[in-house]
């Protein structure tokens, strides 16, 4: 009897000790908080947000566009693609995007590649939120227009639009699995906007203007 009690106590100490180690000494707690609890996995709810392309000039969290985005906009449009590890829809979408950009996203956590589509350079940033640095993760919040109601997979295309007679970066975001045709339509629309507005685009002015907008 005493032996059994000793086993019980030993197991409790062992399990709780290991749990404390995993919680305090690794990044698991943060990973669960930011990558699982705070992000709606659309696979889990068996739904995807309704398809609607709506362009925004301000970022979703009202922060400035990162400088690399503005730099890349001089070269063409930017296609941001976010996923997490455990997500069936993300797997399906990976295949579609791999097909469009002629690359292999299987087991790739971060990839940047450029393809010419509809007469415009389209730079793909493929980001697996479970495996990238905080800097890259923060991009998700910049373009996640639905906030806690959004989720993954998420695609944002940043292009150029006209606001109050001046040209500024603008973006639209889609959630959930999308068919190839829809994504190509999305790219076509963004490319058209880019070609219409590119000649008046001045990257150096953009963040000053955005700060004023706030």
């Amino acid at each position: 009897m005493r032996k059994f009690f000793a086993i019980q106590v030993t197991l409790i100490i062992l399990f709780s000790g290991l749990l404390s180690y995993v919680t305090l000494a690794t990044d698991v707690y943060d990973r669960v908080k930011t990558g699982i609890v705070s992000v709606i996995c659309l696979s889990c709810i068996k739904m995807k947000p309704a398809f609607e392309i709506k362009f925004f000039f301000r970022t979703a969290n009202l922060e400035n566009y990162p400088s690399f985005i503005l730099e890349n906009l001089s070269n063409g449009i930017i296609f941001l693609h976010f996923r997490v590890d455990s997500c069936k829809s993300c797997d399906y979408l990976d295949e579609v995007i791999s097909d469009i950009f002629k690359c292999n996203l299987k087991r790739t956590h971060y990839l940047v590649t450029t393809s010419k589509l509809y007469g415009v350079n389209v730079t793909l940033f493929h980001i697996n939120l479970d495996h990238v640095s905080k800097d890259k993760k923060s991009l998700y919040n910049l373009f996640n227009v639905m906030g806690s109601k959004g989720g993954v997979p998420m695609i944002s295309i940043i292009t150029l639009g006209r606001k109050n007679e001046s040209v500024a970066p603008c973006y639209a975001t889609l959630y959930g699995y999308q068919k190839k045709d829809r994504i190509l339509d999305f790219i076509r629309e963004c490319s058209k906007l880019y070609l219409e507005n590119f000649k008046d685009f001045k990257p150096s002015l953009q963040n000053h203007r955005l700060k004023g907008d706030h």
């Binding site: 709606i40 739904m47 995807k48």
Partner: peptide
């Protein structure tokens, strides 16, 4: 998950 989100945000989600 599915039912509350559909009620709270009608029309925002469609079935996968």
């Amino acid at each position: 998950g599915t039912i509350p989100l559909s009620i709270l945000y009608p029309g925002r989600f469609s079935p996968n």
